[in-house]
C-alpha cells in the first residue's frame, strides 16, 4: 500500500498528535534537569515545579503596590486592545470589502489603494503611530488595525467579487436593488469568509499587539513579558507565553464554532 493511502485510526491519530507535545516537554525537562544539576541557581530553564509555582503566584497573588492581580489585568488590557483592533479591522473589511467587491466603481477606486497600503510593513509605521497618536491605547489599536485590515479588506473584496454572476442576475430579476443585493445576497455569504479572515488575522494581530506593548505600555501581556525579561524571569515569561498560546487557541476555536453555528449552510457537506 502506498504511504499516501495509509491513514491513522483514531487511537494512533491521538497518539501521533500528542507525541510532539510529549517530546517537547521531555526535551525541556531533560534540559532543565541537566542545567539545574550543574548550577542550581540557573534561570534559563526553570524546573516544572518552579514554573507551576510561578503560574500559581501570577494567577492568585496580588501586586504589593496596587493590590491587584497583575496577570488578570494584563490579560484584560491585552484582550481589549486585540478585540478593538481586530473588531475595527473586521468592520472596515466588511464595509469596504463589500463595496469594492460588489460595485465596480468602488472597486476601481479602492482596490489599488488598499493593495498599496497592504505593502507597507506595519511595524515600520509604529513610530509614526506613536508620534501621531501618542503612547496611549489608540496607537496600539491603530497598529493592529493597520496590520490586519488591508489583508481582510482584500480577502473580502475578492470573495464578494467571486459571487457567481448567476446569483447576482437572479437577484436582479427578482427586483433587488444594489443595496438589497449587498444586504441580502452578498453580505450573508461574505460573513463566514469574514470569520475565516479574522481567524487568519489573529496571528498577525497578536504579533502587532505584543510588539506595541513591548515598546510602550504600562500593562498588558506583551508588556509584562518584556518587563520581566530584564530580570531573566524565565518562569514568568514561559507562563505568559503559554497563556497567550491558550488564549489564541481558544479564540480560534470560538470563532470556528460561531461560524458553524451561525452559518450552517456554509459548512462542507459531510
Amino acid at each position: 500500500m502506498r504511504w499516501i493511502n495509509r491513514r491513522p485510526g483514531r487511537p494512533l491519530a491521538v497518539a501521533l498528535a500528542l507525541a510532539p507535545f510529549a517530546l517537547a516537554a521531555l526535551a525541556y525537562v531533560a534540559g532543565s534537569e541537566a542545567r539545574l544539576a550543574a548550577n542550581p541557581a540557573d534561570k534559563l530553564l526553570p524546573a516544572p515545579s518552579t514554573l507551576w509555582d510561578a503560574a500559581m503566584a501570577a494567577l492568585t497573588e496580588a501586586d504589593r503596590r496596587s493590590g491587584e492581580i497583575l496577570f488578570w489585568n494584563d490579560t484584560f488590557a491585552s484582550l481589549t486592545r486585540l478585540a478593538l483592533g481586530v473588531g475595527i479591522a473586521a468592520a472596515l473589511a466588511l464595509t469596504l470589502g463589500l463595496a469594492a467587491g460588489l460595485l465596480p466603481l468602488a472597486g476601481a477606486g479602492l482596490s489599488p489603494f488598499v493593495a498599496a497600503v497592504s505593502m507597507a510593513p506595519p511595524l515600520a509605521l509604529l513610530p509614526i503611530l506613536f508620534i501621531v497618536f501618542g503612547l496611549g491605547e489608540v496607537s496600539k489599536v491603530a497598529l493592529i488595525v493597520i496590520g490586519t485590515a488591508p489583508f481582510m479588506i482584500r480577502d473580502m473584496a475578492g470573495r464578494v467579487a467571486e459571487t457567481p454572476v448567476e446569483q447576482i442576475v437572479k437577484a436582479e430579476t427578482l427586483g433587488a436593488s444594489s443595496l438589497v443585493i449587498a444586504l441580502r445576497v452578498a453580505l450573508p455569504q461574505a460573513m463566514p469568509r469574514l470569520i475565516q479572515a479574522v481567524r487568519l488575522s489573529l496571528g498577525p494581530a497578536w504579533l502587532f499587539l505584543i510588539a506595541a506593548e513591548a515598546i510602550a505600555a504600562t500593562e498588558g501581556l506583551g508588556y509584562r513579558i518584556f518587563l520581566v525579561r530584564r530580570y531573566l524571569a524565565m518562569d514568568v515569561i514561559l507562563v505568559y507565553v503559554a497563556w497567550i498560546t491558550i488564549l489564541a487557541a481558544l479564540l480560534d476555536l470560538a470563532l470556528r464554532r460561531l461560524s458553524a453555528r451561525a452559518f450552517p449552510w456554509a459548512e462542507p457537506a459531510r
Binding site: 448567476e166 442576475v169 430579476t173 427586483g175 449552510w265
Partner: peptide
C-alpha cells in the same frame, strides 16, 4: 438596460441562494 422583475431566469447552476 439591466435585468428586472419582468424577466425571470433559471441558469444551469447557482440559480438559488445557498444561504
Amino acid at each position: 438596460r439591466e435585468p428586472g422583475r419582468d424577466r425571470g431566469v433559471v441558469f444551469q447552476k447557482y440559480s438559488v441562494f445557498p444561504h
